[in-house]
Amino acid sequence: MATKRVSVFKSVLAADEQFALRIRREMDERGVLVLNLIGSPGAGKTSLLEGSLRRCRFRAAVVEGDIATARDAERIASCGVPVVQINTKGGCHLEANLVSKALGAFELDKIDVIFIENVGNLVCPAEFDLGEDCKVAVCSTAEGADKPLKYPHLFHECKAVVLTKKDLSPYVRFDRELFWGDVEALNGKAVKIEVDNLTGEGIDTWLEWVEECLEQKRRP
């Protein structure tokens, strides 16, 4: 009996990356835009979607990742768009194999944009590729302005940062300059959007960005 050293050089997430690859390929072929919304519990992800779905001119669908309940999916369904719920049963992030199954429930030729609301968590959802076109960081003023530097991977990798609860900014003494300065330092390309989900302020700017992404994706 002998101990032997074996070289492997294999990605830990190789199996799940295959699912992500397949999702990306299929959505590219179909010209369907997929956005992966990531943010802490209560950041305002579902509220942002509710506001968007009521106003958007494209055909949307939503994948809702939640640890336990179907509450968010019910909120989305009442906006009249197709929604699939994924319960991660304790898991604190979505993985591509779960999303792949969920997407099978949609009539994809009737959809332009799929929003994936990831499980409320600023850390690990950033680590898992779901086959999306872009990750979007959703962060509220109430969480404090220091979040980008504390969770650099998400803010570095996302294509857009949506700052929610703009209306609460004066009450929580939110340091806007610090927040956007840190976002800029981590990610010079990220689009910066501020919204108040309760009044709908800023939602049009956000939707314009989504439409731009969709157009870009479909441009021959």
Binding site: A2, T3, K4, V6, V8, F9, K10, V12, L13, H156
Partner: peptide
């Protein structure tokens, strides 16, 4: 970003079935 995103199994030490 050219490094810093690795999540790899590089190598193993295995006990063979002698």
């Amino acid at each position: 970003t050219i490094a810093g995103l690795e999540l790899e199994i590089e190598a193993l030490e295995v006990l063979e079935n002698g």
